[in-house]
Write a protein that binds this DNA or RNA. Sequence first.
DNA 1: ATACCTCGAGATCG
DNA 2: CTCGAGGTAT
Length: 766
Amino acid sequence: MVSEAKEVQESIVNQVFPEAAGQDVPPEQLRDEYEVLADQVRKLRFAYYNEDSPLASDAEFDRLYRRLEELEALHPELVTNDSPTQEVGGEVSAAFTAVDHLVRMYSLEDVFSLDELRTWVTRAEASVEKIGGHAPLRWLTELKIDGLAVNLLYRNGTLVRAATRGDGTTGEDITHNALTIREIPRQLAGTDHPAEVEIRGEIFIASKAFAELNESMVEQGKAPFANPRNAAAGSLRQKDPAETAKRPLSMYVHGIGAKEGLQTLTQSETYRQLQEWGLPTSPYFKVLDSYDEVLDFIAHYGTHRHDLTHEIDGIVVKVDDFATQRALGYTSRVPRWAVAYKYPPEEVHTKLLDILVNVGRTGRVTPFGLMEPVKVSGSTVEMATLHNQDVVRAKGVKIGDIVVLRKAGDVIPEIVGPVLALREQQQPPVRDFVMPTHCPSCGTELAPAKEGDVDIRCPNARSCPSQLRERVFHLAGRGAFDIEALGWEAAIALTQPAEPATPPLTNEAGIFHLTPEDLAGVLIERDKKVKGEVTGRELVPYFYSRGTAKKPSVPTANTQKLFRELEKAKSQPLWRVLVALSIRHVGPTASRALATAFRSMEAIRAASEEQLADVPGVGPIIGQAVKEWFDVDWHREIVDSWASAGVRMADETDESTPRTLSGLTVVVTGSLTGYSRDEAKEAIITRGGKASGSVSKNTHYVVAGENAGTKLEKAEQLGLRVLDEEGFTRLLAEGPAGVDGAAEGGEEADDDNEDAGLRVEVDEPA
DNA sequence: ATACCTCGAGATCG
DNA sequence: CTCGAGGTAT
């Protein structure tokens, strides 16, 4: 073991040394060698921190580490955010940093009945037949484990990274914790390892282990976990891997993401390969030749659901054959070759104590049920939205009813309906819910925005405290001004405090003019707790410390932070200011489009509806919404007031970034080395281009990075121009002229232009 | 909609 | 020690 590691090190040092000395080496080769070295350093560090016997001496480790630093110093463009040098002194500060999956982690389409499953299967088989395949298909069925998805990246057989699913594109690095899980091998068994393979699995806690874990928690006087899934999730979020190591985490693998040099042809064959590499697959999966057998499988585990070693939330049915999987392909969110069947959700009874209404950011009034807290599918539920008046009526529930409650689609609690047999005996007697006619927050009469709308709204947008609170909360959010220290509670304290009667803010116009003096004496009402028990409500100061005889009441550290954050927020880019205004239909995407097109608030305000609608990605609805928003006096006052407080209302017209991509749509797919996904997007937008997520005939350029997927295939089908990273860089710098070479005399090239020199061939991924 | 983690601040207690 | 805030997960 040790001598093998040494050999690897020698070869790495020898490979890397020449570049470190500054010789000319092709960039791809440099990149490869850099990654080999970085992986090696990671591997040795893992071994050092997580195993009994280190693979290399301290001196050897240091030598490799210094080489890596040297290389990074000479070629800063190589440094990735998961580089071992980015970790501080052995502390794995890579923990929880964002990492891009090489291949997107899709979710699965859910079906909630056998009818829906039948429909899904029929459609899948029909489309396979249409492209020359034949039904019936061979299916692989498996249990859908109720745990957390992980993505394990192995390079040449060595685990180099474990990440959570995140949004499917970008997850969080949890390598430090994944390494404490026995079932996750640091090194794959056998010899024939692909250069690079992403293995997808599910981390969970087995039922028996969970019961024992909770027993020991209780013994230690700690609160038991609510359910195995949350316990597993919490365990993976531990900062200290030693803590994670104490949790009985397990894992089964069930798929492959990126792969380079993996030869298997079916899902089941892949599972066998994974087993040979020492990765645990579920003992429960089956390969079945008929739909009837699939139904049997579902029925069987329906009755034996609770006899299993772990919890499940359904059954996954996959097409076994890879060629057929490829033929079926993906929608934007899910594969067309797999589906998740969900067993009917657990239903419980509880008392509907009241139906209250919420007034949202846009004034929409939403009723929600308040219930006697009850356990359903692993959590304690006491609230459930009822959407609107019509839904309450359709469900037929009355306040005081015993109701049927379940978690629809896994997460959101749903009141199904009343238990009518129990209605008569309720004390106090049940009563009808009556939608309020006046706003519970400001007393203004409620009305639908338009004749016939089901939603009713509070028209007092300007000063309704509820709406204001929601807007303040929103403008402070991560997608807008990003004001830390201004959360839910602070928004209440600013807009609807218990005292004083006149809140510090009666309108968001004033937020940047607040002074610490405005916040003195603000009290909010909060649960009073004695030893964790709620004993009532109490008034507490929010922005200032509790004054005593000796100490005067002074602004708290958090309040000081709030003012620093407000100051910082004033220099946020224009698009964030636009998001902060809470204009209907104007979220981050439309805001970015408007900001790039007009570059200043003044220009947007002055634009006609048509000019607004002409902006790529805006359109008539948003154009109208923006125009109408600026037609309102108090809206313009918000902008003026913020501007007078020093909020930046224009993006610098930076001459150094010429608008080379004006009118062009660019799609980036796969991973680039020099740009993160967001950076690439930003680079396109700041040059006047449109960064789109999907390939169509309106796409002008497709930039294909490593492991580009179906988007590249589609681009090729459509005959679009495909650029590699270098081409992308040229495109950014010089516009079409930079990549069209000697294209015909300045004429805008057609979409179907196929300049061979510009095309990159990339192996078709899984 | 809820559970769980981390962090920092401030209250509480000996 | 407890709380709010901010993040993640399904």
